[in-house]
Structures are given as C-alpha cells and as structure tokens.
Design a protein around this nucleic acid. Structure first.
Length: 425
RNA sequence: GAGCCUGUAGCUCAACGGCAGAGCGCCACACUGUGGAUGUGGAUGUUGUGGGUUCGAAACCCAUCAGGCUCCCCA
C-alpha cells in the first residue's frame, strides 16, 4: 500500500460512480448546446507553448501550465484553455465558415495550481461561443444557453444565479469619475476583490492604488447601484432579449461583476451558487473583440463562456441533484446453477443480448445466494435461474428483484417475458 | 510561491506519553435451489513515509508526501 505509485497530484480518478456524474454533466451540456443549434468541436490536448504565450496572461504560461520538452526538443503544453486553439482554427478557415459560428466543446484541461475544493489540476470544461455577430441579443443567447443548462440539471433560480455587467458601461462610469485609463485594470482587480476583503481594508487598498476620496465614494455608489443597467442601451436590449427567451428569472444585473481578464470588452457574466459552500464561479464568460488579432486573422467579435466540471459536481452534490447511480447498465443477471450449466447459462445470456437486452452472466460456479447478492449490489432488475428442474421442463425462472415475485416461463417465450417484466419494473 | 489545519481498519472517526478501538461495510454460518431484513461468529492496521526525543510514541520534535482552508491566480 505504502509503496503503491500514487496518481499525479491534482489529477482525478474516475471510478464508475464519478464517471457517471461526468457523463451526466456532459449529457446536460450537450443537450443545452444542441437545443440552441450549436455544433460540437474539439482541438488538440497538447499545443505549442507559443500558442499561449501570445495571448494568455504571463501567470498562466509561466506558472500554471504543464509544459515540457518533447523528444524532438520542442516545448509543448497540456492545454490550459481553449480560446487560443479556437482562434487558430477559426482563422484558418475564416472565409469559408458560415456565420454566425456557434460551437461548443467539452474536454479535459490542465492547470498547475494548488488543488483545493472546487479546483484540481486536471478538469473538464464546457466551452461555448458564438462568433461573427456583435449584438446584445447574441450575448443574451449565450446567457440563455447557460440558464437552460442550470435549469436542466435541476438548479432553481434561487440556487444558481447568473450575474451580468457590461464593461463599456463601467468604462463610461469610470470616465465620469475621471479615473485614468492606466488605472482601469487595477480598478477591475479592486472590484473583483471587494467580496473577499473587509470594507475598511478595501477602502485603504483603493486609496493605495491612487484613487482619491471622491473617486472611491463614486465607485462605491456605482457598485451598489443595481439599477445602473438602465443607463446602458446595450443592457436594456440584452435584458429585453432574455425576457423573450424566457430565462430572465436566472439572470440579475450586478455592477460588481468585472472579470479581471483583459480581453472582455462588452457584456460580462458569472454564475454563482447562491447558498453552497463553494465560493467559486460555476461558469463565466462575456463578449470579446479581436479574437483573431494574435493569430493573423481579420477582426472577429464573439461571445462565449466556460464552465468547469469540478465546481458543478460539488454544487449538484450539495443540492442533492446527483442522478441515481446505476452500477451496471445490465437489467438482467443470468445465474449459473453449477458448472454443468456453464454452456446453457451462457447461451441464455447470448439469447437475451441478441434481443437487445443488456445482460450479465455469472462467470463461475457459486452459491445462488452469492449470485443473488451480486445482482442486488449491481441493482439489476431481474435474475434468471436455470437449474436441473427447469431444464428438464424447458423452462427458465425469471425473478423480479424489486417485488420478489418469480415466474417460470418457457424458453421460447423468454425474451418476450423478460421484455414485458422490464417495461413494468 | 506564502500562511494555517489534518493524515489511525475498506469508510466515518475514537484513543492524546503507558495493551490500537467503535460504528458502518466486508466474509462465513443460521438458510447445502434464491437477494434486500434479522441473529451469531470472523478477518482486517509497519497509526501516510523517513528520522529524532523518551524506559516507553498513534500522540512530542524535524523532514517528506498527500489532502483541506486561505492568500495569490482564475486565461
């Protein structure tokens, strides 16, 4: 045990139960994406480090990526995000794509971070983007996709809310406060941190960054003004579109949403679990311009968001929204009476499979008691018994494990009986 | 990269310088052709790893590995 080789720190082992959750999330992601007509796509899992050096933050490339030298001496990176790959692939076919491009993807990513609750070094992420259109209605559609997903996994608007803001609106407010352009990034970070800092400390930090008292007071006024969106034509149209799309109950305006990333230029949004133990965003995204600037394409605007599977899984668990786990996809267990029945039981299982019924067969002689216990643990609906008594009469015992009732049926009628019992079970 | 906390049976935890335990789970039997319920019995540990202090260490000290909570970061 002690000498066992351990998995790499921050990676995840998916036992069947965790795999079922991952697939559950994947299926809901796919359903929400496809409901809006988005196409599934993917990119390489390993990329040249230069792909990220161009666009991504320094922190990401130097400290938070899994980078190594391959046998040919090139530096490669396990992808920490998808956007640069998206940009390259779009640019390569920029003139032959049908716009608007609506693409989604769900796959693995790696970031060399300190693992903690809701954050691992290996995770799955849903990315979804609409490219080639720049309108508040397009932004609303992405938020609607996110809302549709949240609803589909059983989260109510009380439990998960998407908070929205607009970078251009904030910029115009910052203009009014005469906050100079070179301080905007600092102020963004300041706003992002507000919920994590004590009020007095936050004030002091703001002054330290070079804001004067008037600007600080003005900033606090902005951040507590939840009606501010009414002054943004874009946001008015955005919320109007959300209303029409029927998902506005999941969405709220919040001037505190900034998203530190440099490249967001218009609408920004983040979804949070409103009551759980995870303080991290469930998903986040926004509108960006110049997606292709660094990969040699023509200017192209887009809107999109990303959602990690780790936080989502924790939220679902805490809300009791995990789907029931079925240990086996089989509905039926064919027991093995003793070794003289090996061929007959195996043939019986094959007969069921040929009829499209997922079937387990016990592969070695064992007490029936043990075999029934196994069927129980695997939660199969039916168990079949074929022993000397039945065999002599050309019958098979079919037992409903939930009700405990069992019937003898003729071998020729077995498939129909099993199908009938399964549809009632 | 920094700070704090935690590692004991498969799981959840107790023992807090003096014989390493409980519940759940697991296995067997009651029931040699039938699961879930019940009863009886049983197995399970280099106390994360390595060193040190001590007559004696799961406990105290140092190192290391892993996990958790923050800071940082969140593309």
């Amino acid at each position: 045990m002690a000498n066992k080789i351990q998995p790499i720190k921050g990676t995840r082992e998916f036992y069947p139960e965790q795999m079922a959750l991952r697939n559950f999330i994947y299926e809901k992601v796919r359903a929400a994406s496809q409901a809006f007509g988005y196409q599934e796509w993917d990119a390489p899992f390993i990329e040249p480090i230069d792909l990220y050096a161009a666009k991504s933050g320094e922190e990401l490339v130097k400290k938070q990526s899994f980078t190594f030298e391959d046998r040919g001496g090139d530096f490669v990176t396990l992808r920490p995000e998808l956007t640069p790959s998206l940009a390259r692939m779009i640019a390569a076919k920029q003139n032959e794509l049908a716009y608007p491009v609506r693409w989604w993807s769900f796959g693995p990513f790696w970031r060399y971070e300190q693992p903690q609750k809701g954050r691992s070094r290996e995770f799955f992420q849903w990315n979804i983007d609409m490219l080639g259109v720049n309108s508040p209605q397009a932004d609303a559609e992405l938020v609607a996709v996110a809302s549709t997903f949240l609803k589909s996994v059983g989260l109510t608007p009380d439990q998960a809310t998407i908070y929205v803001n607009n970078r251009r609106l904030m910029d115009s407010e910052f203009d009014k406060l005469q906050i100079p352009n070179e301080k905007r990034l600092d102020v963004s970070n300041l706003v992002d941190r507000r919920s994590k800092m004590e009020s007095a400390k936050w004030d002091a930090y703001a002054i330290e960054l070079g804001l004067n008292q008037t600007q600080l007071d003005g900033l606090k006024n902005i951040l507590s003004n939840f009606e501010l969106w009414k002054e943004s034509d874009e946001l008015v149209k955005f919320f109007s579109a959300l209303e029409a799309l029927g998902v506005s109950e999941y969405v709220k305006y919040d001037p505190n949403i900034m998203r530190g990333l440099l490249y967001y230029t218009g609408t920004v949004f983040e979804a949070f679990d409103t009551s759980g133990s995870v303080k991290r965003a469930i998903l986040g995204g926004g509108r960006y311009d110049n997606l292709l600037a660094d990969v040699g394409g023509n200017p192209l605007s887009g809107v999109g968001f990303a959602m990690g599977d780790v936080v989502m899984g924790i939220v679902l668990q805490e809300k009791g929204l995990l789907p029931e786990f079925n240990p086996t996809p089989a509905d039926v267990l064919v027991t093995l009476f003793d070794e003289t029945f090996l061929s007959k039981s195996f043939a019986l299982s094959a007969q069921l499979r040929n009829a499209g019924i997922n079937t387990l067969v016990f592969p070695e002689p064992a007490k029936l008691q043990k075999q029934f216990k196994f069927a129980d643990k695997m939660k199969t609906k039916l168990a079949l018994v074929l022993g000397p008594d039945e065999d002599a009469k050309g019958l098979v015992v079919v037992k409903n494990l939930k009700s405990g009732e069992q019937v003898e049926v003729k071998k020729e009628a077995l498939v129909e009986s099993v199908k009938g019992m399964l549809s009632n079970a």
